[in-house]
C-alpha cells in the first residue's frame, strides 16, 4: 500500500520566537527552521510501517515556497521514498492545504495518509480532519498507537480524560500525537542518499486549487507578561500569603 505523509517547515521547537514590535508578525530572519515535530513523528510511523512490510512506498508532501524543499529532503533522509513540493507564495492555511492534498490523492492511489496533529507555529490542529472530511475517509486523530490488521487499522487516540480505541477501514487519515513514536535521526549516508531521491515540483495553479487564505492576520502581539512575584522564606510564609493575601486556600 502507498502512504502519503504531509510535512510543514516551522520554526524549530527549541527557538524562543521574537515578535516584531510593530505587530506585523514573528521575526523569522536568521531563525533556525525544522520539520514540524508532529510531522517528523508521522514520517517515522510511515517508515516503521514500511519496515514491517505493510507499506510499499512513502510519498512526502509539503506546500509553500522553495524553502520547504529542505523539509522534504529531511523527510527523504528519514526514509521517505519520494517527495512532492506544491509551490505557492500564499500563506498556507488548513482548508487550502487539505484541498491541495485531496488533489494529490485523486492523482495517485494512496491508502493511508499520515499527518502531524498540528503545526507548532500556527497551532491550528485542523488539516487532517479537513482532509478526511473532503475525501469522506474515516479519521483517526491524536493517535498514540497504530496497528494494521488486514484491511483495517486500529488506533488508540489521546482524548481528554483517557484513551479511545477506534477501528476503521482503509483508506484512512491519521494524525499523530507526541507519544506515537520517537523519531530516528537521519544518518549522514541517508542524508546523502536523500539528495538522489525524486522530488517533484508542482505549482498550485497547475493543480487547480485555490490556496488563497480565508483568514487574515491583522496583528501579532506578545501576550501580557506575568510579572515575577516574590520569593518566600519558608512554608509558613507561603501559607500566610496564600491564605491572607491571595486568599486561594
Amino acid at each position: 500500500m502507498k502512504v502519503m505523509v504531509a510535512v510543514k517547515r516551522v520554526v524549530d521547537y527549541n527557538v524562543k520566537i521574537h515578535i516584531k514590535t510593530d505587530g506585523s508578525g514573528v521575526d523569522l530572519s536568521g531563525v533556525k527552521m525544522s520539520l514540524n515535530p508532529f510531522d517528523e513523528i508521522a514520517v517515522e510511523e510511515a517508515v516503521r510501517l514500511k519496515e514491517k512490510g505493510f507499506v510499499s512506498e512513502i510519498s512526502v508532501v509539503s506546500i509553500g515556497d522553495r524553502s520547504c524543499q529542505e523539509s522534504l529532503r529531511t523527510a527523504l533522509a528519514l526514509g521517505a521514498d519520494k517527495a512532492i513540493h506544491i509551490e505557492t507564495s500564499f500563506e498556507t492555511q488548513p482548508l487550502g492545504v487539505a484541498k491541495a492534498l485531496k488533489e494529490l490523492v485523486n492523482r495517485e492511489r494512496f491508502h493511508l495518509i499520515i499527518l502531524g496533529k498540528q503545526a507548532i507555529d500556527d497551532d491550528y490542529n485542523q488539516t487532517g480532519q479537513m482532509l478526511a472530511a473532503l475525501l469522506r475517509w474515516p479519521q483517526g486523530t491524536f493517535v498514540s498507537q497504530l496497528t494494521i490488521v488486514g484491511e483495517e487499522i486500529e488506533v488508540v487516540r489521546e482524548v481528554d480524560g483517557g484513551l479511545e480505541t477506534l477501528k476503521m477501514p482503509l483508506p484512512a487519515v491519521i494524525t499523530t500525537d507526541l507519544r506515537l513514536n520517537v523519531p530516528r535521526y537521519a544518518t549522514l549516508p541517508n542524508i546523502m542518499k536523500a539528495k538522489q531521491k525524486p522530488l517533484e515540483v508542482i505549482s498550485a495553479e497547475a493543480l487547480g486549487i485555490d490556496l488563497r487564505p480565508h483568514l487574515k492576520t491583522l496583528t501579532i502581539v506578545e501576550p501580557s507578561k506575568r510579572k515575577a512575584g516574590i520569593k518566600v522564606a519558608d512554608v509558613d510564609e507561603l501559607l500566610e500569603k496564600l491564605h491572607k493575601e491571595a486568599k486561594v486556600i
Binding site: 490542529n125 480532519q129 479537513m130 472530511a133 479519521q139 491524536f142
Partner: peptide, 23 residues
C-alpha cells in the same frame, strides 16, 4: 477547544467550505 471539539469542528468547516478558527 477540547479533543472533542478539535476532532469534529474542522470536518464540519471543510464541508461547509469555510475556515475554522481554533482556540
Amino acid at each position: 477547544a477540547t479533543t472533542f471539539g478539535k476532532n469534529i469542528l474542522p470536518r464540519l468547516a471543510a464541508l461547509l467550505d469555510v475556515a475554522q478558527i481554533s482556540d
